[in-house]
């Protein structure tokens, strides 16, 4: 099912961030949303995730199983990495699968560390693990590789491709090569 953004306008007070934007995302398609800062890339993602309501226009075709890596890690600081993942995944994903994914991302040693003790790069990867382990139909990635070195970024890209091969993927990044390496051909300029 296509994800359709139809004639969306979104303003915060006096400032209009998105004006009459219409887009169509094919199911399973991969898209990079680009544009200068302040042009509404994150706002568009938030509208698609149902976290904001537009002043006018509609978003239809949002799948039930959606996942996101936000600009912030948004981990519960009091819980361990495993606790954070279990909070989202429940008991349906076995420990082994979680640990394997953490190993793919190079943070298996952090599984039992509280999120408050993680380095920036570890927290980023834990947030990505949380998203890809939910087997999403829609995966929204807002600057997912911020603070990661080349090796960690490469691990993350491979994990996204292996865990979510059929998901609709929406990526916001300032690094076009991240999109290229994720096989993204469609670029949406805002």
């Amino acid at each position: 099912m296509e994800l359709i953004v139809s004639h969306i306008t979104k303003a915060y007070g006096e400032k209009t961030v998105l004006e009459d934007v219409s887009l169509t995302f094919e199911s399973g398609g991969r898209y990079r949303i680009s544009g200068p800062s302040g042009r509404g890339k994150t706002t568009l993602l938030r509208l698609i995730l149902g976290l904001e309501k537009p002043q006018s226009g509609t978003v239809t075709g949002i799948p039930d199983r959606k996942a996101a890596v936000f600009q912030e890690d948004r981990l519960c600081r009091n819980l361990t990495v495993m606790g954070n993942l279990r909070m989202v995944l429940g008991r349906k994903v076995p420990d082994r699968a979680i640990l394997d994914t953490l190993a793919e991302l190079g943070i298996e040693q952090a599984a039992n560390l509280p999120a408050s003790q993680l380095s920036g790069g570890m927290a980023r990867r834990a947030a990505l693990a949380r998203a890809i382990l939910t087997d999403p139909e829609l995966l929204v990635l807002d600057e997912p590789f911020t603070g990661l070195d080349e090796e960690a970024t490469d691990r993350c890209r491979r994990a996204i491709l292996s865990h979510c091969p059929n998901a609709t993927l929406l990526l916001v990044t300032h690094h076009p090569e991240d999109g290229d390496k994720l096989g993204i051909r469609e670029i949406i300029n805002l």
Binding site: N78, G83, T134
Partner: peptide, 19 residues
């Protein structure tokens, strides 16, 4: 921000409580 995250991932209330 955590509440938004829980909304996106559809985390049930009983699992939102501890975290």
């Amino acid at each position: 921000q955590l509440l938004e995250m829980a909304r996106v991932f559809r985390v049930p209330l009983y699992r939102r409580i501890p975290g």
